[in-house]
Amino acid sequence: MAQPKPRVRVPKKADKGDVVEIKTLISHPMESGQRKDRKTGELIPRKIINKFACVYNGNEVFSADLHPAISANPYLSFFVKVEESGEFEFTWVDDDGSVYTQVSKITVN
């Protein structure tokens, strides 16, 4: 359960020139660094996903810089105009340096 798990929704097929909606979700507490431990009173160290990027056939088409105000299990949706079949690569960067990735293929006619 330790490894954050990404979930991505990309249409399997689209027509050339279509604008498709992409939705992403990843399991992550988004610990804000502003919260105190109830028992000790100590601040719980910040640990968030601070960066998300979507690369389509080698080109970054969308990215987001995220701050602690983003809810746990960060959700992002956006659009991409698809011109050719290929691959979407999604990456989430954690404060601790970990990078989580997910790949989805799309067929464009």
């Binding site: 701050h67 602690p68 809810s71 959700y75 956006f78």
Partner: peptide, 24 residues
């Protein structure tokens, strides 16, 4: 107390300048 929420970086490839998320 920390006003920053998110920055979205778009490109012409997005087709629509739209995005959504969830915040605290």
């Amino acid at each position: 107390p920390r006003p920053d929420v998110a920055s979205f970086n778009f490109s012409p490839s997005n087709g629509y300048a739209e995005a959504s998320t969830r915040m605290r």
